[in-house]
Each structure stands twice: as C-alpha cells, then as structure tokens.
Design a protein around this nucleic acid. Structure first.
Length: 817
RNA sequence: GCUCGGGUGGCGAAAUGGUAGACGCAGGGGACUUAAAAUCCCCAGGGGGCAACCCCGUCCCGGUUCGAGUCCGGGCCCGAGUACCA
C-alpha cells in the first residue's frame, strides 16, 4: 500500500538524485554564466575505507553554502575530484598486494556513490582524478613552466632511509627515529632532489595575506601561514677569525642587541668553513662528530629539547663589539639550512646557548638587567625576551638603553663599520618535490650525456607512468621506474642520442596545487586551462577545507598561481578570494583514523535516517567552523523538524486574505527568521540558521498556520540543508523547475520590527523586572511604567541618582539608599 | 616551549557590554492506545519558600562599568598547529 502523503526519505532521495543527473541540474554553463560563483571544497583522497563522517561534514558544509549562493542568483560551479596519487595509495596497495591502478578506480567508484548519495551539488561532468594521464599531463606541464623560469632546480638533500626496508621514507613514516613498518633505526641519506624555489616568493606570500583586496581568509589559517613563512628581522654579523689566514664567519641573529654577550660561535656540522677552522689536535673529534650528525635521520635531527652535543674546532674568532676572542664550536643544534648556518651564542639570553655553555663550561655574560638586577647579578637561566623592561649592562656605550633601542643602534653601528647588515630571514624552505617512488606523475626531464638535463617538449607530454607490476621500492635509492629499460632509455629531445628519463615522480602536493585551475576546463585536452573560462570563474569565490592544509596545500597553491601569473598566464595572483576552515569532527576526542579504529562511516546513518536528515543533523551539531566530537544522540531532532515541515507542506493552503489570516505576530517572526537565516548561512553559522527555522516551524504549528506563501518560503530555506526533501516539497507545492533555480526569500525590514517591546528593568545592575511597552516608547514612558511595577518599585526606596536608558532594551536605575 | 582556538545545565549548544541557557537531545509528568512505538500537551540550571517571590550560578583570582559569559590583568585546564628557526 502506498501512502502518497508520507515522508519517505529513501524514495525521495533516489528520485531526485536521478532527476538531477538526467536534467544536468548541477552543471552550470561554463561559457555563458553571467553571475559565476566558483564554490570549491578540498577534493578527497579516495581511501579504501570510503568517506567518513568527517569528510561528509566538510562537504555538506561547503555544499550548503553553494546551494545558498545559487538561490541568491549566482550560477554556482561546484566541482569535485580525487587526489589519488601519492604515498598513501602506494603504501596501501603494497600492503594488500593489489596494484594501485586497480585499487584506485575501485575506491573512486565507491566515493562517487557516496558523494552522489549525500546530495552534493557536484558538477559531475567536470570530475577529475589526478591519476588520469589527461590530468597529470598538465601537472608535468606545470613543472616545465617552473623549470623554464629557473624555479625548479636540483640539489643534494637529506632523506630518511630505512636500511631494512631499503627505501626512502617520508617524515610521517618515521616514528621516534624508527621506521614505522619494521622499527629499524632510520638513517639520513643525501640524494639528488628536485626543488621549487618557493623561498623567492616568501615576501609576496606574506604580504598578500594582509591585503584584503586579494584575500579574505580565516584568521587561524592566515596565522598558520605567517608562522610557517616565519619572517624574522635581525642582522648578519661577521666575526673576524683570530687566525688572519682564514676569512671571517658570518652569523645570523635576531638579537644584535646582545652582541656584547656573545661568548662563542657555533657552526652547523655541515658548514663549509668547518674544515678550514679545525686545527690539528681537534680534527679527529670534529670528523667523528660530523659523521655522527650526518648519520642521524632527518626527523630526530630536528626534534628539539635534546641534550646538547658539540665539539670545539680549535679556532677562535673576534667579537666585533668587545674585541675579545671567542671559541668556535660545531653543534647539531645549529641548522645549515637556516640563516647562515652559524650563530653567535649568547648564553645569558638564549636558552639553547645557555644549556650548551653550561654543559661545556663556556663563559656566560649578562648584558640585560631586569628590574632589581644589575650587571653583576648572576644568571641561573637564560634571560630571554627583548621587551621585558630590561636595560643594557656590560655593553659599554649602550649601557642603560633598552634592548629594543640597542638592537637598532648596534645594527647601524655594525653597518657603518662594514661588519654587519640588517637582514630579514624566512623560516620557509624550498619545496622538495621529487619522490623516489612509483605512484605519481613522472618528472618530465631527460638526461643526456651531451646536453645535460633536457625538459621533455610540451608536445610529448604526458610522460605516461608505465603500468608495471613490480612497483615496490627497492634498495637502489632510485624510483622503481629505473628498472624498466624500455621506459628508462629514450632519445634526447635535443640531439637524438640515447638519454635517460628522470625516474623520480613528483610530490602529491603538486597535483593538488593547481587542480582548481583545471576544473572549469577539465574536458579540454589541448590546454591546461582555457583563458576565457579561467577569467570567468577564477579566482575561486569560496574555498572551504580543513585547517590541516592551512600550510602546505594552500601555500603551494598560492605559489603555483603566482608563478603562472608572473608568466602572464593568469590575471590574478591569489587563487582563493575567500577561504574558510571548517572544524574537525573527532570521535572520542581523537581525529578519525583507521589506525585508531574510530572511523565513523556515514552510510549506516543515511540508510536509517536519509541523507537529508543526516546533513541537517551534521550542520546542527555545532558551529561549522569549530567541529566537535561526533555522537549520534540527537539525530532524531532534525528528522522531527523535517517531518514537521513536511506536514505543513501537506496542509498548505491559500488564504482568502493574507493579512487577515496571518496574525501580526507570525508575520514578524517570519520576516525575522528570513533575515536571520540568510545572515547565518552567509557566515557559515548553520547551527543557528537551523535553530531559527525550527523556531519558525514551531510558531507556525502553534498558530495552526499553514499559509501557502509562508510554507513555500520555509521549504526554500530548508533547501540548502535538505536538498532532496526540499525539491519534493517544492514539486508538491506545484512548481516545475528545480527549487535551486528559485529566488531566495527576501524579507521586509519594516516587518521585522515588533509592535511592542519588552524592556528589562535593572536597579543597581540587578534585573528586577520588565515592562512591555509600545515599540517607540520614550525613556519617560518606560520609566513611568517601570516605577509602577511593584516588583521594581520596592527597590527604588532611596534616592535615584541616575537612570540609564538603552533604547528598546533596558532601563537601569542607580539608587543610593 | 611557542602560536592559535576553547572552558556556559545531565548532553550538543545560544547570547551587538544590557532579562544567561534560544534551538535540539536525553529526562520527568500527562493525553491518545488493550499495550507499545509514533504523535501531541506540560515541566525542566541549583537551592529555599504554601505562595508572591528570594538567594546562588557561565573554570579560578583580581580589575573596569550603573551593569561582565562577553572587556582588561594574572592563573589553571582542554584541543589544534608547530617544533633546537638563533
């Protein structure tokens, strides 16, 4: 028996998924759209487990926004794709013994099913996967553009190496210095790696973050990027070596003010001057220390809070301020890839230097004295911080000045003497993009004995990743691709002699650093992105994603966009006009992951409650930008809400006379809710938007008011959250075209104002009552009413010293008894 | 350690410096039912009082204000990011 008036989520959702697909409802005309709105969300990595609740939360939140924008009259392009290359897929494939080329399509099919089922407004015509040759052809092309501009280069870089698995490991695969798979202690190996010169762009990447005409981003994300770029302001200072034969040692410091307290120098073990500085008696110890530092894995070397180690080189240098001799040491706490790879150690005012000096018995000099201290007060710990109210001591003519002043003064003093200069440093380092792995786009370079490295001509792209069965990494230190002679040997594009292909593949982050450029042009095979379409749709109007990508993905995308902009291919240099980070959905206080065994799969909930209820529930849980712990406890609430809306739709009727039938109170509530819901959705405060809709529904039911216009607009406002449901209601209300091409309900500001207002009355700051008065009542009217209220009057016994009137809200008496 | 969030009923959460707890879940009481489910109505921060009402209450301590969950200073706890960056 069928019940046509019953809300049956499953049937409705299936019906509308099919209809949207058949009628291409979600595919905007990319060439002719007049009010384009590019609504982007971070494309997923298609794992074998499928979408989890956290993914669904993120996608739903972005989808709600896209649907809302569409109803505001924009042509919304909401594409989706799959970030399917990379070490995750490869490792999983190795583990289960199935080739990634077989595994990934299977996972993508499952993801596609889930994404369709959740009711995302995805333009499936433009779907892409980074593993398709038609996509990575252009990833390789992007590499070549950087290469052409001299922004891609090769140098030796340290990688983690597992001597047991005989393979390169990513930093995430090294747990406490050991291989995550076999537990063997990981070593450092120097391999030739490809790098992108992102450091050239550090300044622009930083400056644009503060330019509201280019970027409107979540504060948390901006902050994370700034920290990552790590701009610091200081000076390079050259210490002359005591031995006239050797040249000076240049250090970088952010604290030139403490120069008088610099009692020794420390060089990174890899520093090129170490050889020249090492004297005979110390050579053996220095060599041993350097060897030991070189053997450490990349992760442990950089992890802080370690016992300090180091050795003396035997040389000394001259402190340019004091003229005194200072010893030159090497230690692994100084990193070659930051600053100049050498520091002046100021143990009195730097914790690390203090620990080092204490351990090795080096002198500690105080140069800043805080309140109640003087030049002779002993230091039992480093006194860091430049603006703690301290004054300079033991610093000759600078004594008595503030460290802040002194920093500038010493810098210019050094500059005038030619022994130093003001500099700016960034913590950012160049992006290592090569991977000695299989599952990625081959880097399009051919090595020729005569011509050197030659880029693959763009006409020859893509360099197809060959389908090989033995894709496991081996102990050679090079990619498995090197074992395939038929692929490896290739004629040199320049001279035609036999050359060899680059066997490294590129980093997954390169795949995702430009995908948003590809979406609008994804069906075009002869260009990476069409100029006209790019001009129409980009930069991205709204990008929503997780803050775990606040740094790498978002920074790399900005960098690639800037490079293409500089090459004259894009007319914007920031790809994402607006970025909002959604919150993280955790389970039992921890991020969902298979290893923790706390992954919540959405399918069971959709089976039981329907996608619309589940979407609404996820958005109602709490603030979208905060996330939270997933529980399914309250899911019946949103379902009951949809049931109530459904009932109103079934009962919807035409009034004889609109104003006569609907009481003023309902009308005001209705307009208030329309105003509020639009505002809340615009700011991604979905939980309160839904709460407002629930209030409206409750009022309509209490007043037994199923007026047709009103119910229709209510349905429209639920549409972003419960799209299938809303379509069905919309159709039942007699509409033919999709609800998402209808216009978002507008409100009348005049009708959001109530006839009467409730004014709180306080006496000496404590609320003692309230009065209900006409909307525009003056202070005098309210005061008279308040004084007549016995609940208030009894507190007004003394002298009324003052009355504070907050129009329309509150009246406060200040009484002295 | 540093940077950024956050601490409000039994629970998820609301609250331009102006009646704290909207909305929802769970709970209690009632209606309908042979019964249950579903649905509907009512109650619901804690304490006191027959009641009208009163007192206390947003992590802790202090401050600004007629008035502080909200602003300022100090502290505690939780979460995220980052990590020897000189």
């Amino acid at each position: 028996m069928s019940e046509p008036d019953k809300y049956l989520p499953e049937a409705i959702e299936t019906k509308w998924c099919e209809r949207w697909a058949a009628e291409r409802t979600n595919e905007p005309d990319l060439d002719r759209a007049e009010r384009p709105f590019y609504n982007l969300m971070m494309f997923p990595y298609p794992s074998a487990e499928g979408l989890h609740v956290g993914n669904l939360f993120a996608f739903t939140g972005a989808d709600v926004y896209g649907r809302f924008k569409r109803m505001q009259g924009y042509q919304v392009f909401e594409p989706i794709g799959f970030d399917a290359f990379g070490i995750h897929s490869e490792n999983f494939a190795i583990k289960v013994g199935v080739h990634p080329a077989e595994l990934i399509p299977r996972n993508i099919a499952n993801f596609t099913r889930q994404l369709t089922r959740m009711g995302g407004m995805f333009s499936w015509r433009n779907v892409l996967s980074t593993t398709e040759p038609s996509y990575y052809k252009w990833t390789q092309w992007v590499f070549l553009q950087l290469y052409k501009q001299g922004l891609a280069y090769k140098k030796h870089g340290a990688v983690n190496w597992c001597p047991s698995c005989k393979t390169v490991l990513s930093n995430e695969q090294v747990i406490a210095g050991a291989c995550e798979r076999c537990g063997t202690v990981v070593e450092q190996r120097a391999l030739e790696q490809w790098y992108f010169r992102i450091t050239d762009y550090a300044e622009r990447l930083l400056a644009n973050l503060d330019d509201p005409t280019k970027m409107d981003w979540s504060d948390t994300t901006v902050m994370a990027q700034k920290n990552w770029l790590g701009r610091s302001h200081g000076a390079e200072i050259t210490f002359r070596a005591s031995d006239a034969a050797s040249s000076g040692i240049t250090v970088y410091t952010t604290r030139p003010d403490t120069l008088f307290g610099a009692t020794f120098l420390v060089l990174a073990p890899e520093h090129p001057l170490v050889d020249a500085l090492t004297t005979g008696a110390h050579r053996a110890a220095v060599e041993a220390y350097r060897a030991q530092a070189a053997a450490q894995d990349v992760v442990t070397r950089k992890v802080g809070d370690k016992e300090k180690t180091g050795v003396f080189t035997g040389s000394t240098a001259l402190n340019p301020a004091t003229g005194g001799q200072v010893q030159v040491w090497i230690a692994d706490y100084v990193l070659m890839d930051y600053g100049t790879g050498a520091i002046m150690a100021v143990p009195g005012h730097d914790e690390r230097d203090f620990a080092f000096a204490t351990k090795f018995g080096l002198p500690i000099v105080r140069v800043i004295a805080g309140p109640g201290e003087d030049a002779g007060t002993p230091l039992d710990a480093a006194h860091t911080g430049i603006d703690g109210g301290g004054r300079m001591v033991n610093s000759r003519e600078f004594d008595g000045r503030t460290p802040m002043d002194t920093k500038a003064a010493i810098t210019s003093w050094l500059t005038s003497r030619g022994t130093g200069k003001e500099t700016v440093q960034y913590r950012l380092y160049d992006w290592c993009i090569s991977r000695q792995r299989y599952w990625g786009p081959p880097i399009p370079i051919i090595y020729c004995d005569d011509c050197g490295p030659v880029p693959v001509p763009e006409a020859d792209l893509p360099v197809v990743l060959p389908a090989i069965d033995d894709f496991r990494p081996d102990d050679s230190g090079v990619s498995p691709l090197a074992r395939h002679a038929e692929w490896y040997f290739v004629p040199c594009p320049t001279c035609g002699k036999q050359g060899r292909r680059e066997t490294d593949v590129s980093d997954t982050f390169l795949d995702s650093a430009w995908y948003f450029l590809r979406y609008p042009s994804s069906e075009l095979t002869d260009r990476p992105f069409d100029l006209a379409r790019t001009k129409k749709w980009l930069p991205v109007a709204s990008y929503i994603g997780g803050n775990e990508h606040a740094v790498l993905h978002l920074l790399y995308s900005r960098f690639i966009t800037m490079v293409l902009h500089d090459a004259g291919m894009l007319d914007f240099e920031e790809p994402f006009r607006k970025f909002r980070a959604h919150g993280l959905i955790v389970k039992d206080g921890a991020k969902m992951s298979k290893s923790r065994g706390n992954v919540v799969v959405p399918d069971q909930y959709i089976d039981k409650w329907g996608a619309d209820t589940f979407r609404t529930y996820l958005m109602f849980l709490g603030p979208f930008q905060e996330g939270g712990d997933f529980r399914d406890a309250g899911i019946s609430g949103p379902r009951r809400f949809l049931d109530k809306v459904w009932e109103l739709v079934i009962q919807a009727r035409h009034p004889d006379s609109f104003d006569a039938e609907i009481r003023r109170e309902v009308l005001v509530k209705w307009h208030q809710v329309k105003q509020r819901v639009a505002e809340e959705i615009e700011h991604l405060r979905y939980n309160t938007a839904i709460a407002a809709l629930m209030e409206l529904v409750n009022v309509l039911r209490d007043q037994n008011c199923a007026e047709r216009t009103l119910v229709t607009e209510l349905v429209q406002m639920t549409a972003p959250f419960a799209p299938h449901f809303a379509e069905e209601c919309w159709e039942r209300l007699g509409h033919k075209r999709t609800i998402f091409d209808s216009t978002w309900p507008s409100f009348d500001p005049a009708l959001t104002i109530e006839d009467t207002i409730t004014v709180a009355v306080q006496v000496n700051g404590k609320t003692r009552g309230s009065v209900v008065v006409p909307r525009d009542s003056t202070e005098a009217v309210v005061r008279t009413a308040a004084e007549a209220d016995p609940a208030v009057a009894k507190y007004l016994a003394g002298e009324i010293k003052k009355v504070i009137w907050v129009p329309g809200r509150m009246l406060s008496f200040v009484v002295v008894s």
